[in-house]
Design a protein around this nucleic acid. Structure first.
Lengths: 207, 207, 207, 207
DNA sequence: CATGAATGAGTCTTCATTCAT
DNA sequence: TATGAATGAAGACTCATTCAT
């Protein structure tokens, strides 16, 4: 049933090859580091020939950028769906923090990829000024913060500043955790940090 | 008189040449980015021959690591001296934050170097497991936090967690700031963040 | 009726496709130059798939050789027909020169193709020793010269030598003209050269 | 004596390496053809490492252009010196023709290089519009023709047209001769052509 | 016959490192 | 010590050719 349409079959095959390459990028970069990952590595990991990569991406750069973007977008979407059930914005904000860390924890190679490797190329920022991988994440965080403020759950803080604190902290501990090969218990650390941050946002006299 | 001691002259020359190379590393990396900086660039900037670099460092890697370490150590020492006059640990903690940002602001190339480029090579962490550029910074931060707790100025929080929040936040905004070519006003952002963080550490009912 | 003979249809299609490829070769090479022209370019210009090219030619080399040969043969045939009306061999010889240049002038891409690009591959001469694109041209020229001699219109010169002078000169000025993007007036130059050459072939005291 | 100056020694070594590469270019291109010659071939022929080529030339293109130019200039200079002793311009013109062919005959690989391969890259004419390898040759020929006219040795012909006839003819027969692996007797052909051309330039009633 | 996705050998170029001077 | 010419391994990318559909 699934394959009785040739057009579909072809499309799927093509899609799966592109996806295989995308996955190969993430896995390989996570393992070998951004700058030691070459086209041959990726091609081998994706089970395709070197040249095949260039059927799907114009250049190595473009391939990496696409991999970053698609991974970030996908993860953000997952998180959004997960926290969509929460009633208050504060809960959503707190859950955002939790889920982000949880997702990364379950796929440590993503931590390595996003948290450690993604910063590696100021080149990208020059060559592709529009390349702002965290932008969506940060915007969404700020939106949650504004909502929480509007709902009266947190005090009147600058949303941008708070978003940087939350994201910077998450980014840093995940990078450290990934770099140190997951030696320290992330769950514990996450809770401690979550407490402190929430405490800093709470209105006086509450709780 | 000046030239009657060859040994001294040589030693001094050597020292100054090594230093010239270290400075050249930082300046060049800051300008061209980590991965576009090659030995020839550095040698030219340091006014030495390519081969000379290898008289002072075993490899390019080692040279970069040493440059990172020495810069971090030097800056930490400067900060320590600056905040040594402060009476309370809380003040020192707050000043640490301020000075760190101030120093970086005045030397944006360091921001680029430390904040953006330093994370670039997970290789380093494998090849040179002892390479933990932030370690000293983080330890010192934790020490300040413990002192502030002991002095009763801040509530009983986990020092490690707090150090990660502070450092992660600083690291992130400086990287963003550097990456976006110093477009947004760092001073403003710093104050907002500082306020929020302090608020989160304060004891209830205080201030 | 139209479609009841599959064999014919197929043969015609095949023929027209082959011709489309041949034309595409000449046009594309004329535009992009020999070595920048690849199979994909040609296939696109001929409106066929890359693989289709290999149904009509064993290799890229063979395809180019066939294109050269067929173009040269076709043009020579055209010239022969045009000068067939002329009475004397000398007139035919002179007209040959004129028509050759005229044809090329009207299709500058051929000049580029024949005059500039055709010489590009000594490989061809090794791989395909029978590849002598000018041979037919030269032979025909020599034949005309012999006839003119027999008719007593020109003095007793070595036909081979004269054929080389005529062809070499034509070849060179057309190549220069094509390479310099048709900047200088070819008509003028042609007449001057034609005069000089005729003068050199004339019998003393004549005209 | 020759090597008692270090600076000289170094300069000579460097010069000899550059020259080795230049010679390797010409020899290798003559043997393998322009487009089948790669950097590795040249480096091997010059007894240097691939990378060494790039110490002397910015790119493969530049290397080829320099090789063309220097070879043409050198040969023209040699010819000029040889014909400088001749009294009349007509003799110089005739000798030019003779010597050009003689030089090429003695170094058939040059014929292949100049005559056959040099035309291979319309790219060059686009990328480097100033690249006109024959220009000097042609100009010098025209100068000789004008002088011969002024001296009354040849009739009043268009110097440009004549230069194209002479150069085109030489170019063509040398290319044919080189391409056919020196099968036919060049000396004979040269004399026949020389006669015809001189005849075409002579004044009526003369000789 | 026709397609065009896939292949992978081949090529230019860069650059960390060495070593003769 | 200092030099910088020389090395050659490595890597991104191209493209003629094949083959499953």
């Amino acid at each position: 049933m699934a394959y009785n349409n040739d057009s579909d079959k072809v499309k799927e095959k093509k899609k799966s090859k592109r996806e295989a390459i995308m996955n190969a990028v993430i896995m390989t970069v996570a393992q070998k580091g951004f700058h030691k990952t070459n086209i041959s590595d990726i091609a081998r990991a994706a089970n395709v020939a070197d040249g095949t990569v260039y059927l799907y991406f114009k250049s190595k750069d473009e391939m990496f950028i696409k991999a970053f973007e698609e991974l970030a977008t996908k993860k953000l979407k997952t998180i959004k769906q997960l926290i969509d059930t929460k009633q208050s914005a504060l809960e959503r904000l707190s859950s955002f923090f939790d889920y982000h860390i949880e997702i990364i924890t379950e796929n440590p190679y993503i931590a390595r990829f996003i948290g450690v490797e993604i910063r590696q190329s100021p080149d990208f920022y020059e060559k592709y000024p529009s390349y702002q991988p965290f932008k969506e994440y940060i915007s969404y965080l700020q939106q949650l913060i504004e909502e929480a403020k509007a709902e009266g759950d947190i005090r009147d803080v600058d949303a941008e500043a708070v978003s940087y604190i939350i994201f910077g902290t998450m980014d840093f501990i995940l990078a450290e955790w990934a770099m140190k090969n997951q030696e320290f218990p992330l769950e514990d650390m996450k809770n401690k940090i979550s407490d402190i941050l929430q405490f800093g946002l709470m209105k006086r006299g509450e709780k």
